[in-house]
Nucleic acid binder design. Structure first.
Lengths: 335, 335
DNA sequence: CAACATGATTGAAACGTTTCAATCAGATGT
DNA sequence: ACATCTGATTGAAACGTTTCAATCATGTTG
């Protein structure tokens, strides 16, 4: 039975509940002798303070809520990991919700977190309408968008520049001497995918090149393999000499198809470039060149920025944007 | 400001707080007209009930705590995923802690969860001394060990039979006609690794074979690659014709080494068998044969069993053990 | 020795729900 | 018209803390 309250500790130690509270929280000077007695009583009775009562009285919860699109995606797993670390350091609990890109599930988690009176909300929203989040923020719960622009809405955000990432990828491909790049990825309804493509296209045009798109239904290894199978089947004069994949899973699948279904050499006949730099990316047969997103840092920064804004009491919104970083390995031609 | 309470809703609707509570929870018949008035008031004022007060009064929290060794390990990620789904279905919140195999961090999460008065605890303990968990269970919070035997302790557990898994692996290797198997894995301080090896050794001996062990410091792709590099460097008459790797990450690394540093064909010259059957396992160049652990099911079952035990009020402990399943793909010789 | 500062301790009021016995207003049966 | 019953509503206590003004000892100062 975890039914021992401060009342009983107080009785046992021959002292008042107020005093017990003070020694538990160090909120006020307590004589050493009394503190010892109280601690002894706590030990004997196995007292653990009740978070609910504590929070009810003090009005806030010392916890943060995080809602991501898919926890089994390595990128979001890293984001969550970084966020959790930051929370641990700040002595906060982190509640994690997985929306599975379902707006309804996202809503359920927002409700749940609202009832918990979380100190703040970190969200990668599924839909494009952020008005609910905006009104939550307006009602006093700080909201931080993660990997999603606040554009227009009165919300703070922490993102990685996908347009720059796209440019970076094509930059490298072009510098390696490739003249027939292609983009593999989809669906384009994902802002992340669309932006990477936009940046890449922009850079290609500057070099006087086209950037044909091979659409995929999702961002998985299998989808990448399918795309790869099609691409290597193209006649040599239509086949790209470099592909930029919207994420690493696609790139891994694409690479497999190239190896299984063709004799093309990587990177000489065809260069492959991924995005995210997930842990498995460097462990492909031909180590993968990739645009690294600082996923864990994203999560950590989201938490830290939110806490800062919370503390500063000014309700200004910040948009923190990271720049991705190209990690060159063997799957693309050296410059 | 989320500072609107039932009191204000009640005033607004011209009704008592009790009634508001009833309509919010459906705990008692309320006339349709009154309910409508109350709901209108709730809507207008933007009332969200306060979980802390609710829990304080009702005494329990409708949440579960999960502490795993490492959330970035795909196996535990799946376990967590399964657990979360089961919790969602039961209307429970799932708090996740990541101990990072650090006993102190594990303890911190146990403290935190105790303060939250979670309805139950799912733990993959780091150390071998489970007495703390035992006393938590004795104090009334149901505890479920995940992927860890309860042996001796008065605790429930949900596990996958690692000894059977080890036997299964060797069974398949032997049936494929291999006569010189080897085990790749470590550290042996992990019960999971030790048990897999034990089962495999047992089966090998039955077939009159030895099972040499190539120890690895950890269960990662890189460690597997290092091991593979050494193994393919052995003279042909000492080289194994089949390796059983303690998990898939090792197996993936091992396969890479074989392909990069030798001309051996997989599976004819050397068969490779992994463990876990993580999502990335089937997407290796030569698709990986692996011993599948029902990770998500493990998490789900842990939650469900815990809830059942909770409901049944009898404090009997159950040990639920799953049997793993061999998934045969191209990296081993067909039978 | 009185007055006072200092530090430790106490008591009681809140926090926002749930819950349950008690009340109330109608409807039903006699 | 009276008693009875039913279903809807209410009021107030309780949950376990925190917090703050008030009290209580002690030692210090004029």
């Amino acid at each position: 039975m975890a039914k021992v309250s401060m009342r009983e500790v107080a009785d046992r130690a021959g002292v008042s509940v107020g005093t017990v509270s003070h020694v538990v929280n160090g909120s006020s000077k307590v004589a050493e002798a009394t503190a010892a007695k109280v601690n002894a009583a706590i030990e004997e009775l196995g007292f653990v303070r009740n978070a609910a009562a504590r929070q009810l009285r003090s009005g806030h919860s010392s916890s943060l809520g995080l809602v991501v699109l898919d926890t089994s995606n390595p990128f979001f797993a890293s984001v969550a990991h970084g966020a959790r670390q930051a929370c641990d350091e700040a002595g906060l609990a982190l509640l994690i919700g997985d929306s599975g890109t379902d707006e309804q599930r996202e809503g359920k988690y927002l409700d749940l977190f609202a009832e918990q009176r979380v100190n703040g909300l970190l969200v990668t929203p599924t839909g494009s309408d952020l008005s609910r989040l905006e009104s939550i923020a307006a009602r006093g719960t700080p909201v931080m968008l993660v990997d999603r622009d606040s554009n227009g809405y009165a919300l703070s955000s922490v993102t990685v520049d996908n347009i720059a990432g796209g440019r970076m990828a094509l930059d490298h491909i072009i510098a390696g001497g490739c003249r027939r790049p292609a983009f593999i990825g989809g669906p384009q309804s994902l802002p992340q995918v669309a932006d990477r493509l936009a940046g890449a296209t922009e850079r290609a045009l500057e070099a006087g090149l086209e950037l044909p798109v091979h659409s995929t239904p999702e961002l998985t290894i299998l989808a990448g393999r399918d795309a790869g199978e099609k691409v290597v089947g193209l006649p040599a004069d239509q086949r790209p000499d470099a592909v930029f994949c919207a994420n690493d899973l696609l790139a891994v699948g694409f690479m497999q198809a190239v190896i299984m279904f063709s004799d093309l050499s990587i990177p000489d006949d065809i260069a492959i470039l991924g995005y995210d730099d997930i842990d498995y990316a460097f462990s492909t047969i031909v180590p993968m060149t990739s645009v690294r997103q600082p996923a864990a840092l994203l999560g950590r920064t989201a938490v830290e920025t939110l806490l800062q804004e919370n503390a500063s009491a000014s309700d200004a919104h910040h948009d923190r944007r990271f720049t991705p970083e190209l990690v060159v390995r063997g799957s693309t031609r050296p410059v």
